[in-house]
Design a protein around this nucleic acid. Structure first.
Length: 510
RNA sequence: GGCCCCAUUGUCUAGCGGUUAGGACGUUGGCCUCUCACGCCGAAAACGCGGGUUCGAAUCCCGCUGGGGUCACCA
């Protein structure tokens, strides 16, 4: 079960150009491993970009793999997976191996590889590097509460670690529910090298006996990621910095299996304006938002390439191919870059100005001014206008970006304060994200959601619906609210609700 | 809070012992111009602090401070 050092990559059909020596002697295999649990995330595109660029830069035979990490059975959805694949394709960040295109190391969807993880967890148990744990959620919560109360670092207390393996095996065989935990060394340090930061040492006592196999039989990230990266012969793990502190677990796992660990490269985290890790509450993070906002895909890729990396020569505008040619880890800076929407818009304007009229028109048509989107708007306004020339005025909110609320009347219902209105909108957006049905964002799912939201919040439907209508459209007279929201789309609607909540917060009570 | 990572203008960054600390976004003054945009010229704006090392530190080392991440049967 060891990686053969050479010849493990699929042969490239035409041989490499003899006069163009590859920047590295051997091909690399890298991967992007998104979890299909929500909207296609800008951070996923960011990491995908650097993986792909590194692969393409390194060697013509390098491979960029897309692996779906859908081991969270309660949150993973096929819709999300499809959306992620679509969004990455939109950006041109295409992959060489993946669930849709296949490849020699499939399947590329972790939910289809469960037998592999069970087998490998078994190996670890046999070797005494992992153990079965029968603790209940209640006991875990109790231990945790006690540790917190005693101001200790919360973590598993090792209760089941001392169980006799034979007894544990017998209990498992009898059908008792359990998980499998990593038996972390209780003393000593784990040291690894991060390509960008150098040597990093973490004391083993800081690392928990992480669950590797959940009671539902699915693996956690830690097990699946290590097993798959090894079996898929991944040579470099390029992932976000948030993984840095759990890398010791992975290093210990590679050691327990007797495998050679890949090279570790942790990219800095994209940030909100306040420097915290980029999040949907503070910043649009869905790639669909940027698409709907009219950001060109090549611009988003270019801009992401500016985050933490510099081309050199003070050059800011470049294509994916140019970046692949010029790439070097030496030019990475580790301060977490703030994702600045203003600069993104400026870069987009540069690209837009370079398009000729027909290319520009083609972009507009591909965006919202084409038959597809218009066809969805038409049924909503057809019977509300008298002359075609009234169309644009009645539908502007389907096409513009952020709205200006300063001249919108009655945003705050009678008897409510701006502050309360603001917080109800903020709460609404959060709930809208969490609610599985509402996430589909159709009239059929939106309406029941809103009605029950009203009941729970104590707001009358009349009050809330008008406020939301004004927040989403800026107008009091519009097509039916839920159809309007459906057509505007989740991203635009969400953005406007948040913007409106922020605006209301700045208002004084009358 | 423990541990880990990071640190140049408001933001993205160049710099890798000797620079008037450069470029870009944004802000701002002006020019161009029927308006706006573009473009052009100019301005304000940064090496977090304290110790070392060195003839000389934004650059190297240490401490502090600050920011971030992480401590799940989520990834």
């Amino acid at each position: 079960m060891t990686a053969s050092p050479a010849g493990w990559y699929p042969p490239r059909m035409p041989g490499p150009a003899p006069d163009a020596p590859a920047p590295t002697a051997t091909p690399v295999r890298v991967r992007i491993a998104p979890s299909p649990t929500g909207d296609p995330h800008v951070g996923t595109a960011y990491i995908a970009l650097f993986n792909r660029v590194f692969a393409r830069h390194s060697h013509p035979d390098s491979r960029f793999v897309l692996r779906i990490e859908d081991t969270d059975r309660t949150r993973s959805t096929p819709e999300s997976e499809a959306a992620i694949l679509r969004a990455l394709s939109w950006l041109g960040l295409t992959w060489d191996e993946g669930p849709d295109v296949g490849g020699p190391f499939g399947p590329y969807r972790q939910s289809e590889r469960t037998a592999i993880y069970t087998e490998h967890a078994g190996i670890l148990i046999e070797r005494g590097r992992a153990y079965r744990c029968f603790c209940t959620a209640e006991r875990l919560a109790e231990v945790r509460a006690r540790q917190l109360a005693a101001k200790q670092t919360p973590g598993y207390d090792g209760h089941c670690r001392t169980l006799a393996p034979a007894d544990a095996a017998a209990r498992a065989a009898a059908g008792e529910t359990h998980v499998v935990r990593l038996a972390m060394p209780e003393s000593g340090n784990t040291t690894f090298v991060d390509r960008l930061r150098g040597e990093i040492t973490i004391a083993n006592e800081q690392v928990d006996d992480q669950v590797l196999l959940k009671s539902d039989g699915f693996p956690t990230y830690h097990l699946a990621n290590v097993v798959d990266d090894h079996l898929m012969q991944i040579s470099h793990v390029i992932r976000a910095e948030e993984w840095l502190s759990s890398t010791p677990k992975h290093v210990v796992l590679y050691d327990a299996f007797g495998w050679t660990a890949p090279e570790w490269i942790h990219m800095p985290l994209l940030r909100n304006l306040d420097k915290s890790k980029i999040s949907k509450r503070k910043n649009p993070v869905s790639l669909d938002y940027y698409r709907d906002a009219g950001i060109l895909p090549e611009v988003l890729v270019n801009f992401l390439g500016l985050m933490g990396w510099s081309f050199g020569n003070e050059r800011e505008k470049f294509t994916l191919t140019e970046m692949e040619g010029a790439f070097s880890w030496d030019k990475i800076s580790l301060g977490g870059p703030v994702f600045d929407l203003d600069k993104l818009a400026w870069l987009n304007s540069l690209y837009l100005r370079e398009l000729d009229d027909s290319a520009f028109l083609a972009r507009l048509l591909a965006w919202r001014l084409g038959p597809d989107y218009l066809a969805r708007v038409v049924p909503l306004v057809r019977e509300r206008i008298r002359r075609l020339d009234e169309f644009v005025a009645h539908t502007s909110f389907f096409f513009v970006g952020d709205l200006d609320y300063t001249s919108v009347k009655d945003l705050v219902p009678k008897g409510r304060s701006p502050k309360d209105t603001s917080s109800v909108l903020a709460e609404l957006v959060d709930k809208l994200d969490e609610d599985r049905d509402a996430r589909a964002f159709t009239k059929a799912t939106l309406e029941p959601f809103f009605r029950s939201f009203c009941e729970a919040s104590g707001w009358k439907t009349k009050e809330l619906f008008m406020t939301v209508r004004l927040a989403v459209t800026g107008l009091a007279a519009t097509p039916p609210l839920f159809e309007t929201m459906e057509v505007c789309g989740r991203e635009l609607t969400r953005r406007r609700l948040r913007q409106c909540a922020a605006y209301l917060k700045t208002l004084k009570a009358p």
